[in-house]
Nucleic acid binder design. Structure first.
Length: 428
DNA sequence: CTTATTTACCATACCTCAAG
DNA sequence: CTTGAGGTATGGTAAATAAG
């Protein structure tokens, strides 16, 4: 703006060349006033300003060096506000790294999940995209390229999905905050690698028996309980003598032992869902024998979080020092050795540091074996779902549907049984 | 020193909930 | 019933530490 030009002159020129916007034309949004004024008259800094009200009615100002730029921006703002793609310009300049931290801080999830979110953001999101400005992420190609680098990293599809979900959630919040016009993760052109759905292959009964036999004596009944009632590992570790109803033939799954970071705590089972499971006579006998041999040990741990209220339960299965089992120690030690004893994995080679086992040969395999045996015997999905503690029978069905005996084999078996019965009657 | 155990942290499968 | 988004427990390795 040339020196000596008065503010009034500028206003005048502006209004002459830019007729007042028609009120009715833009009544669907709140951007009504937009005008340009010089911000200073000494030739320094930005001299043209666009003013408007944003979607929430807050007044916004943006400064420009030239009138042409300001004009262009003013037009853009109107279009953006009308179409809903408007974002606050200044705040989109923050980096993804900074915004991801806000997302982490705003979350209220459990400690396990918080740890995972924090690690995922740090290792997979901020590491690759952390220095980018938020608004620069509004391009599907950028997101797709990032997915590609994850793929090249050799991660499982399920892992990439997990990382992507968190990323999408962060950008989703940015959209809600008005910092991004839309979430590029939702774009049609952003594609995740497709997963081949893995089917659970249950252990054979021989393997179940062999591995249980290979466990240390103090935990053999624990293995039997895991297989015989389908409990999760943490639920076995938290199983107490008061959870058994010998008379009625039930066990109650009321808690688990969980690690919060490295601190063990008692907590409700996964999904905060307690349940009861029928107890077979043989398993009951095994538990009684175990209790005689290894009397229940009172263990006190905080409830739910390390600084939670201390609770004491008389646990059936504790380590040699009378502590609740630490799953990391257990899986590395007793469990792996049982796998070796059962010939599931080879013994450790000289010089090798660890016993190697496949992920599907963890203790969870006993739970899967339980499900498999029940389905094979014709137990209903509904009942199985209850015993496993699934809240959704649909999930149980999806997980185990391939283990349901086929209709043909059920038919053959039924007829075979009928024949046997008929022959038995004829003989009598 | 070598080997065993524990700790710290990461990857993955498992699981819930509710909307479509 | 199916599916997508959100969340959690289990499986695993390497570094740190303790034990032999």
């Amino acid at each position: 703006m040339p020196r000596g030009t008065s503010l009034a002159d500028v206003y005048d020129r502006w209004h002459k060349s830019h007729p007042k916007p028609d009120e009715t034309q833009c009544s669907e949004h709140k951007s009504r006033t937009r005008r340009m004024v010089p911000t200073s008259d000494h030739g320094i800094g930005k001299r043209w300003q666009v003013r408007y009200r944003d979607l929430e009615g807050h007044q916004r100002k943006e400064n420009f060096h030239t009138r042409a730029e300001a004009d262009k921006r003013a037009a853009e703002v109107d279009v953006e506000i009308r179409s809903g793609s408007y974002v606050v310009p200044a705040e989109t300049k923050q980096t993804l790294g900074a915004y991801a931290q806000k997302w982490l801080d705003a979350n209220s999830v459990g400690p396990t999940t918080a740890l995972r979110y924090e690690a995922t953001v740090r290792n997979h999101i901020v590491a690759h995209l952390g220095r980018r400005e938020l608004r620069s992420l509004n391009r599907p190609s950028v997101v797709q390229g990032w997915i590609r680098t994850l793929q090249d990293g050799g991660f499982e599809v399920s892992t990439i999905e997990g990382i992507f979900d968190i990323f999408s959630s962060i950008l989703g919040m940015a959209v809600e905050d008005g910092l991004l016009p839309k979430n590029p993760c939702k774009s049609k052109s952003v594609k995740l690698p497709t997963a081949t759905k893995k089917k659970i292959v249950p252990w054979s009964l021989e393997r179940v028996r062999a591995v249980i036999n290979g466990l240390p004596e103090r935990f053999q009944a624990g293995g039997k309980l895991a297989f015989g009632c389908g409990l999760r590992q943490g639920e076995i570790f938290g199983f107490a003598v008061e959870d058994i109803d010998f008379r009625g033939g039930w066990i109650h799954v009321n808690r688990q032992v969980r690690l919060v970071g490295t601190k063990p705590v008692f907590a409700l089972p996964k999904g905060n869902r307690i349940r009861s499971v029928p107890l077979s006579a043989q398993l009951a006998a095994a538990l009684k024998a175990h209790i005689r041999r290894f009397p229940p040990t009172a263990v006190t741990l905080p409830w739910a979080k390390p600084d939670g209220e201390p609770k004491t339960f008389r646990l059936l299965f504790v380590d040699e020092k009378g502590r609740a089992y630490n799953r990391s120690v257990f899986n590395m030690g007793a469990w792996k050795r049982a796998l070796v004893a059962a010939d599931v994995i080879p013994p450790r080679k000289r010089g090798a540091r660890y016993l190697q086992a496949a992920p599907e040969d963890g203790m969870h395999a006993l739970r899967h074996a339980y499900a498999s045996v029940l389905l094979d015997a014709g137990e209903s999905i509904k009942a199985l779902s209850e015993y496993l503690g699934h809240s959704d029978p649909g999930f149980t069905l999806r997980t185990y549907t391939h283990l349901l005996p086929s209709s043909e084999s059920r038919t053959r078996k039924t007829i075979d049984d009928a024949f046997r019965e008929a022959e038995a009657e004829a003989e009598a």
